[in-house]
């Protein structure tokens, strides 16, 4: 292999046909309110962790639904489980349980 001083760039495009939807499929069954999120961001606005770290529950839920799961474990570890997101959600998503279930899926599939 030669070294040209450049290489193929990583494709930023989400390839939905190939992405990993195991966490999504697990959480959808275990906590069905996961489906009714409208990505309004109220959870992230109030998130204790999100105010000081890159943790963004709204975005994480969206990415899990697209099968983009790299970094979910690290992101989720910042959550303090205070429950404010569940309190704030206007749609009735049980966000606290969604977080538990994402964690379970991470363990189940060793992700």
């Amino acid at each position: 292999m030669k070294n040209f001083g450049f290489s193929l760039s990583k494709d930023r495009q989400i390839d939905f046909d190939k992405s990993d939807k195991r966490i999504m499929d697990f959480v959808k069954i275990e906590e069905p309110t996961f489906n009714i999120c409208i990505a309004c961001g109220t959870c992230t606005a109030t998130c204790s962790a999100g105010n000081f770290t890159e943790m963004n529950l709204r975005k994480m839920i969206t990415l899990i639904k697209r099968g983009e799961i790299t970094g979910v474990r690290a992101e989720l570890s910042k959550c303090m489980l205070c429950g404010k997101c569940s309190l704030a959600c206007p749609r009735g998503v049980n966000t606290r349980n969604v977080i538990f279930k994402i964690n379970q899926a991470l363990e189940k599939y060793s992700l």
């Binding site: 930023r12 495009q13 989400i14 939905f16 046909d17 975005k59």
Partner: peptide
């Protein structure tokens, strides 16, 4: 573009 994920997306 999945504007909420902030990434382009393709799917069949």
């Amino acid at each position: 573009e999945d504007t909420l994920a902030g990434k382009p997306l393709r799917m069949s």
